[in-house]
Design a protein around this nucleic acid. Structure first.
Length: 723
RNA sequence: GCGCGGUUAGCUCAGUGGUAGAGCGUCACAUUGACAUUGUGAAGGCCACAGGUUCAAUCCCUGUACCGCGCACCA
């Protein structure tokens, strides 16, 4: 029996020791819990897969928040006796990681990845990823996350590669994946294609030119991208526009600044009458919209820009950068008296989320996921969708949310999600970067082999890699053993809960739904609770360039992981951003100290003989025990509804202002001057209230609660005590 | 253009159909043997604005303003 507590709560020492104890106990692993009799064999499963942090080397409070957010529900359910699994892992984050290493390489050695070559470059990236991984995993542990490390996964490891290959092959077989030559988002800086969702729009000022191709061309058009106009094959007008009706269907041969063009005038609903001159020069090879229009009207396509954003058209423009070419064309039009107007307009420029490169739409042969064609769903476990039913991916993704099989919280994000589906185009999944899963396709002459490496000679492997979100889309089931029918997959999929940030609703959450429903015929998770972004005290996003980064590890050493957890959770409603304030962390550090001292006081008054003294608890003359039970009901309900902030605040308030300020103060007199019997009764009551409070607080502040609980009840572990 | 949030004490934010809450900060007093202090108490808000529904609205509905965000457009 421990009968003494240090006067100071040594946060750093305790938190390190406690986490080690938890980990060594093996009880983060549900199988061990069952083995040791902590969890019943037939207990209900509760499973969560950690949104894998990118191995890009940066740690921030966002991770700390996300870890805490999940750990609360995981610890809560574990204490409720469920067979609870939380799977850890990291994300290779293909383009993000590669871009980071390329940047360093350029800065330090003035070399590009092409200077190093594929093999050597990948060595560097993998080394960097390994280092980042180790740092990240250390941080996740430091925050107290009760993850089953024996099941740790990496989106680029052997097992996940099997899943990715199987996923691709299966989707290909189902007709959901095709290879096509389409206009895609080309990032000249990263030298790769990216998907629509990896684009970030930046508002800039741009010159808006109004001009004619030539003197005798009847319609003036407007554009910000003059240089692309050498690739025009049509002019589009609105079908009901009286100004241009008479020209529709006519074709013209013009000399546009030395380039001969054959222009057809077409009518299309997509044209806005009020914008510019109401007529639009159609450049099928270098605009997504124009390309779609060209498909519809069967227009030819002329590529005039290459992968380095340089002009390829014969003549004086050849080899010029697009920006130079724009100037050149403008000057030429001025000379010829064809430039009718120049104005400044605000324009949204598409840039690559990861490299910052300005996107150049280009026609390229790429792999796509078809979201609009019907396919035959297999092994459906989805409500209202039978196996063999014909359905599109869009419909699938929509249905599982609309029917409530997947609950998105807060609810407002359901609308955002559905709106995204409405605007969704086919998903381009091939990338020209080197870091990532290789596309499992081989070519020989006209033959194509999909899946594992083919037999025989002469096959050439596709050089491209996958969009990182294709592999992380399999995360809920690839971490549980898919494509094999493993016991884990059977026991823990669909997962119960997923807790990512709202900023990856489309990029990741939607893709998990897409892949799980189409490949497994099942939902990936029952509830997805989206949390907000952690910002600095001024509301700025944390970023390297802003120099406002805070290292959670340093903060944890100073105030404790418990305090950080509370500071992030308390006062933060689900889905709202957090403004991070160190003062708040300090406040919850004081709360740790307060709890420590309540415990210390109670312990100091422990009678020599504690037997038979809990009559005071049963009698409960002042209703303190009942009131605590009432609080427990409320806290339980709050956690069940993901109102962690309310639960945390109520517990804080109770422990400090009721237990400490009121009840402990009341008992002081009895403990000092009462009879032996009164002293024992008083102690029993306080101990009961304290331990019960610790139990409830444990999911929020696991370290200090575990430490104190262990002092009062040696040999027991609060983490697996019953809620 | 379409859509989604927000607007509550000096600051950061909770919250509810019945005339408002927390933390921090401020002020006063007390306290140095559970407490890196802590305790007791106080000041401080026409809950953005205008209509409506209701016996009753900060909370529901409509509109306005400002702030933030997403999507689309961006020729």
């Amino acid at each position: 029996m421990i009968d003494r507590m240090e006067s100071r709560y040594d946060i750093k020492e305790v938190e390190a020791r406690i986490y080690k104890m938890w980990e060594e106990s093996g009880l983060f692993n549900p199988d061990v819990c069952v083995e040791k009799g902590v969890t019943k064999k037939d207990a209900e499963a509760f499973s969560v897969v950690l949104p894998p942090p990118n191995v890009t080397g940066t740690l921030h409070l966002g991770h700390a928040y996300e870890d805490t957010f999940q750990d609360i529900i995981v610890r809560f359910e574990r204490m409720r006796g469920k067979k609870t699994l939380w799977v850890p892992g990291t994300d290779h984050a293909a383009i993000a990681t590669q871009a980071k290493v390329e940047k360093e390489l350029q800065k330090k050695e003035k070399k590009s990845r092409f200077d190093l070559g594929r093999e050597e470059f990948l060595k560097r990236v993998n080394a960097f990823a390994k280092e980042s991984h180790d740092t990240i995993v250390r941080q996740v542990r430091r925050m107290g996350a009760s993850l089953d490390w024996s099941r740790e996964a990496y989106t680029l490891d052997e097992k996940r590669n099997r899943a990715v290959v199987a996923a691709f092959a299966k989707m290909h077989e189902l007709g959901l994946i095709y290879r096509g030559n389409r206009v895609v988002n080309w990032d000249p800086k990263g030298q790769t294609v990216i998907s629509d969702d990896e684009i970030v729009y930046e508002e800039r000022k741009a010159k808006f030119y109004t001009f004619r191709y030539s003197k005798d061309f009847p319609i003036a058009i407007s554009t910000t991208r003059l240089e692309t106009k050498v690739g025009d094959t049509a002019v589009a007008v609105h079908p009901s526009d009286p100004r241009y009706k008479k020209f529709v269907g006519k074709e013209y041969d013009v000399d546009f600044c030395g380039t001969p063009l054959h222009i057809k005038v077409i009518a299309d609903e997509a044209v806005e009458k009020e914008f510019g001159t109401g007529a639009l020069g159609v450049t099928p090879a270098h605009s997504m919209i124009d390309w779609e229009m060209a498909q519809k009207h069967k227009l030819p396509l002329i590529q005039v820009i290459d992968e380095h954003a340089r002009m390829t058209i014969a003549g004086p423009l050849k080899g010029m950068k697009t920006t130079e070419a724009r100037e050149w064309v403008a000057e030429e039009l001025r000379k010829r008296g064809l430039l009718e107007k120049e104005e400044e307009i605000p324009q949204n420029v598409s840039t690559s989320e990861r490299t910052g490169g300005i996107i150049e739409p280009l026609p390229k042969l790429q792999w796509f996921v078809n979201v609009d064609s019907k396919f035959e769903i297999q092994n459906s476990k989805l409500q209202g969708i039978k196996s063999g039913a014909k359905i599109t991916l869009k419909e699938l993704m929509r249905k599982v949310v609309e029917s409530g099989q997947i609950k998105i919280m807060p609810e407002r994000f359901e609308k955002v999600y559905l709106h995204w589906i409405d605007n969704l185009r086919d998903w381009c999944i091939s990338r020209q970067i080197w870091f990532g899963h290789r596309i499992p396709v081989w070519y020989k002459g006209g033959e194509i082999h999909v899946g594992g490496a083919p037999q025989g000679n002469g096959w050439e492997e596709d050089p491209d890699t996958f969009d990182t979100w294709f592999s992380s889309g399999t995360w809920t089931f690839s971490t549980l053993g898919w494509p094999d029918e493993t016991p884990d997959l059977k026991a823990f999929h669909p997962t119960s809960f997923m807790g990512p940030g709202y900023e990856i609703l489309f990029l990741w959450v939607a893709r998990m739904i897409l892949m799980s429903t189409s490949l497994l015929g099942d939902i990936p998770f029952r509830t997805v609770a989206l949390h907000g972004i952690v910002r600095d005290s001024k509301g700025q996003k944390f970023s390297k360039s802003a120099g406002n980064g805070i290292d959670p590890l340093l903060l944890a050493d100073q105030y404790g992981a418990d305090a950080i957890r509370m500071a992030l959770i308390a006062g933060t409603a689900l889905g709202n951003d957090v403004k991070f304030d160190e003062q708040k962390v300090k406040g919850y550090r004081n709360f740790s100290t307060k709890i420590w001292n309540i415990a210390r006081f109670v312990l100091l008054n422990r009678p020599a003989d504690v037997r038979g003294s809990n009559k005071s608890v049963e009698a409960d003359p002042r209703g303190y025990v009942a009131a605590l039970q009432e609080l427990k009901k409320e806290v339980t309900a709050h956690i069940e509804h993901f109102e962690f902030h309310l639960a945390a605040e109520k517990l804080y308030h109770y422990i400090w202002h009721t237990l400490a300020d009121k009840i402990v103060e009341e008992e002081k007199a009895k403990l000092k001057d009462g009879s032996e019997e009164e002293k024992a009764a008083s102690y029993a009551l306080l101990e009961h209230l304290l331990l019960e409070s610790l139990t409830m607080l444990h999911p929020f502040m696991p370290f200090v609660t575990e430490e104190i609980y262990g002092i009062f009840t040696p040999g027991k572990m609060l983490m697996v005590e019953r809620w």
